[in-house]
């Protein structure tokens, strides 16, 4: 979803940029002093003079046309992105059947994950492929932001508040979660590992979670952060 919208914006933005900048550069060249042009000579009769009362040079029509065109583009863009927002926020999440609910808690400087069975794991998030995952995100100290760029996940982790986001990974693999809000000296290393597993393997791991200690291996857990009083 993100990819598509991003590409549309990039293409549209590039087109607009090329057209506008191209027009700018073309006319800067065309109307350089010394270029002998009829319209310039005609305009020579009405150039700004020192001490004149400031005024414009008219030419409203071209401006209106361009402005009208850009308004159409901008309003369409608002309408379309609103549609995408509704889809992401409402529609897709509602269709999600049986999401996996994981609570994410950010702290200086790592991430803890609590699964539906109440078990908490530090530094590694394991999810099954092909199943919607709903993350409820909090912070136990300062303002963080939990993001998994390669899975297009991101939401703020705010002390005293709860935010929610969801995703569905289609393929097994390993991803990295990072912190996207400056949170202290360990911010640059505040990462967690995200492992997307085959559903069967996931079920097996999940079942074994009850038997082992809550803290998983600190594969990606960062070196000890500042202890908060």
């Amino acid at each position: 979803m993100f990819r598509e919208i991003f590409v549309v914006f990039v293409v549209l933005g590039t087109v607009v940029g090329v057209v506008v900048l191209g027009y700018m550069l073309l006319n800067a060249y065309r109307y350089r002093d010394g270029a002998d042009r009829e319209d310039v000579r005609k305009a020579d009769g009405d150039r700004p003079t020192l001490g004149e009362l400031p005024e414009g040079s008219g030419g409203g029509r071209k401006l209106f046309l361009s402005f009208g065109l850009s308004t159409v583009v901008v309003v369409s863009l608002i309408v379309w992105t609103y549609g995408t927002l509704l889809y992401v926020e409402g529609g897709a999440a509602a269709q999600a059947e049986d999401p996996l609910d994981v609570e994410v808690v950010g702290f200086q400087f790592g991430w803890k994950f609590t699964y539906p069975n109440g078990e908490q794991v530090n530094g590694v998030l394991r999810v099954p492929a092909d199943r919607p995952v709903r993350l409820t995100v909090k912070s136990e100290d300062v303002f963080h932001n939990f993001g998994i760029p390669s899975l297009r996940v991101k939401t703020d982790a705010i002390p005293g508040q709860t935010t929610e986001t969801w995703f569905m990974a289609e393929e097994p693999g390993t991803h990295t979660a990072q912190c996207f809000e400056l949170c202290g000296v360990g911010h640059s290393a505040m990462n967690a590992e995200v492992i997307v597993m085959e559903p069967a393997e996931y079920r097996e791991w999940y079942g074994s979670l009850n038997e082992t200690d809550g803290n998983a291996s600190s594969v990606a857990a960062p070196a000890g952060g500042v202890s908060t009083p």
Binding site: N27, Y31, V40, D44, F67, S70
Partner: peptide, 17 residues
């Protein structure tokens, strides 16, 4: 957008140094 266009159109028929 309007302001950007206004600035660009000002170049037309100008003697740009």
């Amino acid at each position: 957008d309007l302001m950007v266009f206004a600035l660009i159109y000002t170049m037309l028929k100008g003697r740009i140094r």
